[in-house]
């Protein structure tokens, strides 16, 4: 080891010779270019376009200030979309996650039967949302589908749940739970398998019943996994789109719009770039806000 301090040219020379410089110059830029070009730049442009009324051709020239945002926040369909997103979050937190946790507790042990159930419950998650939507639109079809079979059996009139303003979104939430509970269950299973068996046995020796073990030992120990799953449920609720299109396409009379279907219907398909960008910006801010909250929350939970 030389103790004489290296001069700057010397250091540059060495870096060039051992290929470090080449490695950085060669291996890093592809990622940086792709990411900037297709993620960051479009996002930044969203922030600009949101203040224009523009159809996407030529240069945006018609500066409208906050008008796009005002129109959006004043639009009753947008209110409905927000409210639907909140409903999705609530269903995820209050129905889907408890269901997933209960099932995870039932099948987290490694046995052949449990492995089969795990596989079955996880299956919907890997299917395309669009296929799931199509399958369930058959199930809910009042003329042909399973719903028709049920009304038929009871001799009732054909009933189209997806055409019912009150119940259509409930049907959609059912599909969402069907599609995603297996994912949350898998997160919990991975966490539960990480809980040392000793702790469960120690609690049993001290007189804990199965439910006591769940409440006092297992759930507190998998709290980080529960937080992660809640985070994904909320971020996921913001993005629901594919499932809605084949089921209701946002209808009837816009009662099942979500933020992304709203963006698609009122921004993209009418080429209202400015308005759509404004919706995108709101979506972005919501995602950032949730991420920041999650960071705060999980840091506090860990330090406590």
């Amino acid at each position: 080891m030389s103790t004489i301090p290296e001069s700057f040219p010397e250091r540059v020379g060495r870096t060039l010779r051992d290929g470090r410089f080449t490695a950085v110059i060669l291996l890093l830029p592809p990622a940086l270019v792709l990411f900037s070009l297709f993620v960051i730049v479009p996002l930044a442009e969203s922030g600009r376009y949101a203040f224009f009324d523009w159809n996407g051709y030529g240069e945006p020239a018609d500066w409208v200030g906050f008008e796009n945002f005002e129109r959006m926040f004043g639009h009753s369909v947008f209110h409905q979309a927000i409210w639907n997103t909140i409903k999705l979050v609530l269903v995820s937190l209050l129905v889907q996650m408890p269901l997933a946790l209960a099932l995870a507790l039932m099948i987290y042990r490694k046995t052949p039967t449990n492995a089969v159930f795990r596989l079955i419950f996880f299956l919907p998650f890997i299917l395309a949302e669009i296929a799931a939507g199509l399958i369930w639109s058959f199930v809910f079809d009042g003329n042909y589908g399973v719903a028709a079979g049920i009304t038929h059996a009871f001799g009732g009139e054909p009933y189209f749940v997806l055409g019912d303003r009150t119940w259509a979104f409930v049907a959609i939430m059912t599909v969402i739970v069907w599609k995603y509970f297996g994912f949350h269950m898998m997160i919990y299973i991975a966490a539960l398998q990480g809980v040392p068996q000793d702790l469960v046995e120690a609690a049993k020796i001290e007189g804990a019943k199965t439910l006591d073990v769940v409440r006092h030992v297992q759930i507190p120990l998998i709290k980080p996994a529960i937080m992660v799953s809640a985070f994904f449920a909320i971020i996921g609720a913001l993005q629901v789109f594919d499932v809605i299109i084949p089921l209701t396409n946002g209808g009837p009379s816009n009662s099942t719009q979500t933020v992304v279907t709203y963006l698609y219907t009122f921004g993209l398909s009418r080429l209202k770039i400015g308005f759509g960008s404004a919706v995108g910006i709101v979506l972005f801010l919501a995602a950032v806000l949730i991420a920041v909250f999650y960071q705060r929350f999980s840091n506090r939970a860990v330090s406590r």
């Binding site: 040392p196 000793d198 702790l199 046995e201 120690a202 609690a203 049993k204 020796i205 001290e206 007189g207 804990a208 006092h216 030992v217 507190p220």
Partner: peptide, 16 residues
């Protein structure tokens, strides 16, 4: 186990 009048100390301590 809890009805046997025993207690157990584990190798890993098994503290919560």
């Amino acid at each position: 186990p809890s009805k046997r009048g025993i207690s157990m100390v584990f190798q890993s301590y098994a503290l919560y």
